[in-house]
Design a protein around this nucleic acid. Structure first.
Length: 475
RNA sequence: GGCGCAGUGGCCGAGUGGCUUAGGCAAGGGCCUGCAAAGCCCUGUACACGGGUUCGAUUCCCGUCUGCGCCUCCA
């Protein structure tokens, strides 16, 4: 069974087939770098990171993201801070990169800044002018929507409705149609601008994306992503620009949109001032717990990050890690167990193939976890392999530290730990075992308490005592 | 007002025209354990409301209500 994805353009789940059977070209709208990224960015970019990783199982993936490094807010903030727009954008782009790498979002293969693509942007505007789809006003060039009747096909908003009584579309001066959007903004005094054949100015917001995707992918590509709040007008405008220029449709074969992250019931957004930054989240939670929280929701759902949710995510995560810790047998598991693993693995991937149903996949995973937990011992390499395979996609479990540190005595004598600190712990664990054997429990418990104070966790099992380093504050 | 998405058990959250339970967290009871931890077993409340289609609907259709998003920058 193949991969199926929900396409916003058709409002249906469709079979996924890239233009080039071996390669997926995907583009996800990146941030405007005028401030720190927040939990909403973390959600969207983590979910697309997962999607790209999953596509990577079957295809080579070219994952392109843009960075908007010039716009009104950047200019305004820079002026406030006494910096150049460039300095401010550079600073927040670095901050964004740091936040994404903290989250473990590693799948982006190409990052493109708007200001590095002025020539491509100008070229697109010129071609729109040549096609009769752009016109000039005193403050810049605009797209003429009357030349693109399909405008609105992504959002289902096919008529620019006079009855949109609450519409806040700028009725500015001489625009031919109320929804016409800026392609190139003429330079204003004191603002940064670029000298081009269109005159001094700077790009409109929508045109940078199509200029960048055309450069990297050509006129058409496979997958375009972003959060739902970008559907209108941003993605509509991209479609209008590129399909007008190329005469080919669709711009992107599959349009995928993530649900928004809410706070107190309302959308989290920088412009709303109600946002929690990634940097703040970082103080409170382990990055894997945060990733787990995102992965445990379907990408299209909206969600809210609460302490209760995060506690739940942490507990769930640890359940997987505990199983991994238990799977210590050298070879493969016994046949009956191996069969369970195969069946569970199959169910897991079947769910993911169905429009990246991560909650469904986790359900399959936990069903397997429970059935495997019934086995006292014998869980072997196939279990470890599967959990590693899962984690290569989710990156939400702390399997590695467990491998490196679960060296307690009594577990098949395998001590992976080597340094002196670990040797000391080994010694303490051994001493405690002797005390327990002598039924001197008070002293044994004292050792356990001392180790716990250092963040070392101890478990007595039928096979002996295991120990490992806990995953730290906040889990 | 227009367009779009959604309403599932204490919380989170998939899914399905009837088949055996989604799953996780939390709660209560039990087992295991010197204790702890981990784990296992058991227990409980579901599908917003009103119609319709159907032998049968939480699952399809219509309507109502409610929430969210977009219509301005926005992941």
């Amino acid at each position: 069974m193949g991969l199926r994805v929900y396409n916003t353009l058709t409002r249906e789940v469709e079979d996924f087939a890239p233009q080039d059977p071996a390669l997926v070209r995907m583009f996800v709208c990146g941030p405007t770098v005028y401030d720190y990224s927040h939990a909403g960015h973390a959600k969207t970019y983590t979910q697309f990171d997962f999607i790209a990783r999953y596509l990577g199982r079957r295809y080579q993936v070219r994952y392109l993201q843009n960075v908007t490094d010039i716009d009104d807010k950047i200019i305004a903030r820079a002026a406030q801070a006494g910096q150049s727009a460039r300095e401010l954008a550079d600073y927040f782009q670095v901050a964004y990169d740091q936040d994404m790498s903290w989250l473990g979002n590693t799948a982006v293969t190409d990052t493109a800044r708007a200001l590095d693509h002025i020539a491509e942007i100008v070229s697109q505007v010129q071609r729109l002018i040549a096609a009769g789809a752009a016109y000039e006003l005193d403050d810049g060039w605009y797209f003429d929507l009357s030349t693109f009747p399909e405008y609105g096909k992504l959002s289902g908003r096919m008529t620019v409705a006079p009855e949109d009584s609450l519409s806040r579309i700028d009725e500015h001066h001489a625009k031919r149609n109320p929804g016409d959007f800026a392609l190139w903004k003429r330079a204003k005094p004191g603002e940064p601008s670029w000298d081009t054949d269109l005159g001094p100015g700077r790009p409109g917001w929508h045109i940078e994306d199509t200029a960048i995707t055309e450069k990297f992918f050509g006129a058409q590509y496979d997958l375009h992503g972003g959060a739902v709040d970008l559907i209108f007008p941003h993605h509509e405008a991209e479609i209008a620009q590129m399909e007008k220029i190329s005469g080919r449709a669709p711009l992107a074969r599959y349009w995928m949109h993530t649900g928004l992250l809410r706070i107190d019931g309302a959308k989290m957004a920088r412009s709303e001032g109600n946002f929690t930054t990634v940097r703040q989240l970082r103080q409170q939670w382990d990055r894997r717990t945060l990733r787990y929280a995102f992965i445990s929701h379907h990408y299209r759902s909206s969600m809210e990050v609460t302490d209760e949710l995060m506690d739940s995510a942490q507990a769930s995560r640890k359940r997987i890690e505990s199983l991994y810790r238990r799977a210590t047998a050298d070879g493969p598991s016994p046949d009956a167990v191996a069969q369970e693993v195969r069946a569970g693995r199959e169910a897991f991937f079947a769910a993911l193939d169905d429009d990246f149903d991560t909650p469904g996949a986790l359900a399959a995973l936990f069903s397997l976890v429970r059935s495997l937990n019934r086995h006292e011992s014998g869980l072997g390499a196939d279990v470890r392999d599967f959990l590693q395979e899962v984690d290569a996609l989710f990156d939400a479990f702390d399997l590695r530290s467990v491998v490196e540190n679960s060296a307690g005595q009594g577990i098949a004598g395998q001590s992976i730990a080597g340094d002196s600190a670990d040797a000391h712990i080994e010694e303490q664990v051994r001493l405690r075992a002797e005390l327990r054997a002598a039924r001197r429990f008070a002293e044994a418990d004292e050792i356990r308490a001392q180790l716990a104070a250092k963040g070392i966790i101890i478990e007595d099992t039928a096979g002996g005592t295991r120990w490992w380093y806990g995953t730290g504050q906040g889990g």
